[in-house]
Computed example of a mutant assay.
Amino acid sequence: MRRATMANAEYALTMARYNAWQNRNLLRATAQLPPEGRALDRGAFFGSIEATFYHLLWADRMWMSRFKGTRPPEGGIPGSTRFDGSWDEFCGQRAAMDREVLDWAGQLDAAWFAEDLVWFSGALGREISRPKTVIVMHLFNHQTHHRGQIHAMLTAAGVRPDDTDLAFMPEHPEIL
């Protein structure tokens, strides 16, 4: 695979800030719904708003475990839409993961991006090797994709989140 050069440490840090800003934005909007509104199957890929949020947290944990060489989350993709705890506990763990992604992105350098990431894909059942530049772009694209689904579900439920455009991200957003 051709090594993409557009992902670098500055890109990763910008997208980590955007990720945290938008997670906070959508969680604030979601707070306007009752618990049954969060859990309602709205026909999205993972069904509900909360299941999609849970999948995002699971996926971020999975990628961080691969990047850092730590123990991955349990459950695989089929279990990624469940969370063992309350909504408030989820929100706390989401904020902690956003901080972890920010801290991770803040320590990256060009040498790290020059390498490939090798991991075992449970989805494909085999080892994969890809340039870290591509995988970092995937991490943030995956987050944006599923947050877009959450945004659409919220809008359909009559809830309007704040701005989502990267160009409108505050210079120093109150993230956590």
Score class of each variant (00 low, 15 high):
residue 142 H to N: 08
residue 114 A to T: 06
residue 90 F to K: 01
residue 118 V to W: 09
residue 86 S to Y: 04
residue 67 F to W: 15
residue 175 I to R: 15
residue 126 R to I: 07
residue 155 T to N: 11
residue 124 L to M: 13
residue 54 Y to N: 14
residue 63 W to L: 09
residue 114 A to E: 15
residue 6 M to K: 03
residue 67 F to R: 03
residue 96 A to M: 07
residue 51 A to D: 02
residue 110 A to K: 12
residue 52 T to E: 06
residue 139 L to W: 05
residue 47 G to V: 04
residue 140 F to G: 01
residue 111 A to N: 13
residue 5 T to P: 01
residue 76 G to F: 13
residue 49 I to S: 00
residue 126 R to H: 07
residue 49 I to H: 00
residue 159 V to K: 11
residue 146 H to G: 08
residue 79 G to L: 10
residue 1 M to T: 09
residue 49 I to T: 05
residue 94 R to I: 02
residue 174 E to I: 06
residue 159 V to G: 09
residue 145 H to F: 09
residue 140 F to E: 01
residue 175 I to P: 02
residue 134 V to F: 02
residue 160 R to M: 15
residue 142 H to P: 04
residue 170 P to F: 13
residue 115 E to C: 10
residue 130 R to D: 10
residue 116 D to I: 11
residue 21 W to D: 00
residue 23 N to D: 10
residue 113 F to V: 01
residue 142 H to V: 07
residue 36 E to C: 08
residue 108 L to H: 01
residue 106 G to P: 08
residue 169 M to Q: 13
residue 3 R to T: 14
residue 22 Q to A: 15
residue 157 A to R: 05
residue 28 R to S: 08
residue 1 M to I: 08
residue 155 T to Y: 09
residue 50 E to T: 06
residue 94 R to P: 00
residue 103 D to K: 14
residue 41 D to H: 11
residue 174 E to F: 05
residue 37 G to C: 07
residue 141 N to Y: 07
residue 136 V to C: 15
residue 72 P to Y: 06
residue 61 R to P: 00
residue 32 Q to Y: 08
residue 141 N to M: 13
residue 168 F to D: 15
residue 121 S to N: 03
residue 174 E to M: 07
residue 141 N to V: 14
residue 86 S to D: 03
residue 16 A to Y: 00
residue 55 H to R: 04
residue 25 N to S: 04
residue 172 H to L: 15
residue 86 S to M: 05
residue 7 A to M: 07
residue 19 N to D: 14
residue 83 F to E: 05
residue 42 R to M: 14
residue 7 A to R: 00
residue 122 G to Q: 09
residue 101 V to Q: 04
residue 67 F to S: 03
residue 74 E to V: 07
residue 65 S to T: 11
residue 1 M to C: 11
residue 75 G to A: 07
residue 146 H to P: 04
residue 8 N to I: 04
residue 131 P to T: 06
residue 96 A to L: 08
residue 33 L to H: 07
residue 172 H to P: 05
residue 114 A to M: 09
residue 53 F to H: 02
residue 166 L to W: 13
